[in-house]
């Protein structure tokens, strides 16, 4: 046995280890966090985005297919289920906290999410987007774990749905606060609701930076948007396909 084949055998044993994907993902995410901190929280450099590109480059470098990677990164992916269930906890707590405002928030969530999805689908359809892309766009303003689960159910592509959700969130935090300032919206409740509906978790993180009340309203709006969309969308898609 030559020296080079020995070392490649040793390398293979790392790459094919059932935890290799987990290790690579943790490493890439840690690197992403480091970059985010170093650039003073540049919204384009969310830890996850830098992490994604790092994993992608590593896969190219090791000559690994996505399926090979995904098989060994499963333990992380599987956590999305319990995390989605856990989203009921902050939703319940925010509903309790902001009881008096529940009806107007609920109506606003319903109207605003219908508007945002209609505009998205309208433009994408006019510009010639295909059916699986259109279906993956339907979940664009709900928090990513719910979006991916729902997207699978309605025939979208969950990984594309996730990318659309994250892009929406980034646009939301980049332009959201300045649009609200220009419109002279200073009511914290309204600012929070707007961020939560249009930019889900990324927007809520930004709203919490503004202040606690804004953050609480954003979290409530994000939770309601996700919850309602998760139950309404499959029914709408099912009904419209008849």
């Amino acid at each position: 046995m030559t020296k080079s084949s020995m070392s490649s055998f040793a390398l293979d044993s790392i790459i094919n280890n059932p935890l290799f994907g987990v290790f690579l993902t943790l490493l890439a995410f840690k690197f992403g966090q480091w970059c985010y901190k170093k650039t003073n929280r540049n919204p384009f450099l969310q830890p996850m985005i830098v992490g994604l590109f790092s994993v992608f480059l590593a896969l190219l470098a090791f000559g690994l297919s996505f399926d090979q990677y995904f098989a060994t990164a499963q333990p992380l992916h599987l956590m999305l289920g319990p995390v989605t269930v856990a989203l009921a906890v902050p939703l319940y707590e925010n509903v309790q906290r902001i009881r008096a405002m529940l009806t107007p928030v609920l109506i606003t969530v319903l109207l605003a999410s219908t508007i945002t999805v209609s505009i998205t689908i309208g433009i994408a359809w006019l510009m010639g987007a295909g059916q699986s892309t259109l279906l993956s766009l339907l979940t664009k303003s709900i928090t990513t774990p719910i979006a991916m689960a729902v997207s699978t159910e309605i025939g979208g592509i969950p990984s594309l749905a996730a990318v659309f959700v994250i892009y929406t969130g980034i646009i939301g935090v980049i332009v959201g606060p300045s649009i609200l300032d220009k419109l002279r919206i200073s009511d914290k409740r309204i600012r929070g609701i707007t961020m939560g509906i249009s930019a889900h978790a990324i927007g809520t993180a930004r709203a919490i930076e503004e202040d606690r009340e804004t953050g609480a309203f954003s979290a409530l709006a994000m939770g309601m948007t996700g919850f309602i969309t998760a139950f309404a969308l499959p029914l709408i898609v099912l009904w419209s396909s008849y």
Binding site: V117, L180, R189, T194, A199
Partner: peptide
């Protein structure tokens, strides 16, 4: 489809941010 997606997502998100405060 990137251009269609980019425009659709950007325009809809900005419109929603501008409309939601008034609905609320």
């Amino acid at each position: 489809e990137w251009l269609a997606l980019l425009i659709a997502l950007t325009v809809s998100t900005i419109t929603t941010i501008a409309l939601t405060p008034y609905i609320m």
